[in-house]
Design a protein around this nucleic acid. Structure first.
Lengths: 128, 128
DNA sequence: TCCTTATTGCTAATGCATTATTAGTAGCAA
DNA sequence: TTGCTACTAATAATGCATTAGCAATAAGGA
């Protein structure tokens, strides 16, 4: 049988942080933001709640090369997009659309199901 | 002062494994291959030698989302290419060329220095 | 309000890739 | 061949993200 899930202020807060961020956040970024509102939330709680939000299909995880997993809302993830990783501040941003033309270069016999594109550079805030 | 590096059979073997592979290998893949020739090489040695080959600019590391770092020859890496990760066997292959057209979709103020593309699907050997 | 029990905070523990330690081994210059 | 010392094998240790355990807390239905 399934256990029924409760609405706690931690969960509401974490959801609103992820939703308002508009970009994928690491658990520790979420934690940092959450601490401002609930000074005693623990990182373990962040992980627990992110996982349950994932189970409930509200958020999805994205992983980038050499970086910890990040989380964003399912609604955002449903629009095909890619990611921009700022070399300076380390933040990751969504980049709408897709400039990838997959084609001739793939060796014969290989079948492609999906792809990920990660751009690197400097974000707006770090470009000054 | 710098210490002069020696040519050992471990180092020669590891280099030849990376070179012949023609695709990026994880330290543990290298280790597995090396064990066939030198049944007592330790994984730590693989790491040490890969690092020294990196220092000597003979190999470079590539990291993919959610996967350990892999190593390939500098010569290969110098040709712009991307990677294909087989969902079945987990091997990573190089894909020559670049089908990416980066452009209009990037938010104003963001500057792009480089990019990574990872394709996912099934490799030739796993498609049967 | 009062229970039941899901949830939390805290902390220790885990898993994993990677690195340090150290005693013994083996390049290589002489 | 010898001697110096870089290198190796084996293993313990590290760093890190993530998870488990447990007593205390707090949803939310009766």
């Amino acid at each position: 049988m399934e256990t029924k899930t409760r609405s706690t202020k931690q969960k509401r807060l974490i959801w609103s942080i992820v939703e308002r961020a508009g970009r994928p956040l690491t658990p520790s970024e979420v934690h940092g933001a959450a601490l401002e509102e609930l000074p005693r939330v623990s990182l373990a709680t962040i992980y627990r709640i992110l996982k349950s939000l994932q189970d409930e299909k509200q958020v999805v995880s994205v992983s980038l090369p050499g970086a910890p997993d990040r989380y964003e809302t399912k609604a955002r993830a449903d629009h095909h997009h890619h990611h921009f990783h700022c070399d300076r501040c380390g933040k990751v941003f969504d980049v709408p659309g897709c400039g990838l033309h997959v084609g001739a270069d793939v060796p014969a016999g290989f079948s492609i199901k999906r792809h990920e594109v990660v751009l690197y550079g400097q974000c707006k805030a770090c470009s000054f």
